[in-house]
Computed example of a mutant assay.
Amino acid sequence: MTEEPRLSAEELIERLEPSLSRGRRVRALAALLAGLAGLVFAGALWSSEPGPLPGRTQLMFGLCAVFCLAWACYGGWLLTRRVPLFATDRVIAAWIALVASVTTTGVVAAVGVQRGTGAGVAVAVAVGGLFVAAALVLAVRAHARRAALLRRKRDLTGGP
């Protein structure tokens, strides 16, 4: 009778969450390409506008470019990972989404109040609030998943 080989704690950890599964590679590539495409599009639009743009417009183009760059960097970072991430990627993506949705909602609401559009501000804040709520739910779930994976790692390795 042969005895089954025992896996080390590190081998068990690697089986918990592969370093980069096919699905994660596809999502990482999608984030990278979408971020780069958005950055190129926003930059082309921003640079092709005739004359000096109002400050609010400059701000929104700049924010759009920053958010697109963040997604491109996230996708590139994720593609270069060769170690188990323990849901760190989910936490980072959720925070990018939360910051982008809160910032965009705040700026749109401020511009709407400044212009005095009334009902339009309420609709923009309501829609933005839905995006913020969705991003917040994703952030809470990502943090919970990461904590569960780190607890399991701790249990398997016997570490602190």
Rank of each mutant, 00 (worst) to 15 (best):
T2H: 11
T2A: 13
E3F: 08
E3C: 07
R6P: 05
L7N: 10
S8N: 08
E10G: 01
I13G: 00
E17Y: 05
E17V: 05
S19M: 04
L20Y: 03
S21Y: 07
R22T: 14
R24Q: 15
R25K: 14
R25V: 09
R27S: 15
A28D: 15
A30D: 10
A31I: 01
L33W: 05
L33R: 00
A34I: 05
G38Q: 03
V40Q: 11
L45I: 11
S47N: 07
S48E: 13
S48Q: 15
P50V: 15
G51P: 03
G51E: 08
P52K: 02
G55V: 10
T57D: 13
T57E: 15
Q58D: 06
G62M: 01
G62V: 00
G62S: 02
L63F: 05
C64M: 12
C68H: 12
W71E: 13
A72N: 03
A72Q: 02
G75A: 04
G76C: 10
W77T: 09
L79D: 09
R82D: 14
P84W: 00
F86W: 09
A87T: 00
D89S: 06
R90L: 06
V91P: 00
V91H: 01
I92P: 04
I92G: 04
A93D: 11
W95D: 11
A100W: 12
S101P: 06
S101L: 07
V102H: 06
T103E: 07
G106E: 03
A110K: 01
A110F: 07
V113G: 01
V113R: 02
V113T: 02
Q114M: 07
T117G: 01
A119S: 10
A119I: 10
V121C: 06
V121H: 03
V121I: 13
A122C: 10
V123I: 14
A124H: 04
V125T: 13
A126D: 04
A126W: 07
G128I: 05
G128F: 06
L136V: 12
L136P: 09
V137D: 08
L138F: 08
V140W: 11
R145P: 00
R145S: 05
A148Y: 02
R151I: 05
R152A: 12
R154H: 09
D155L: 11
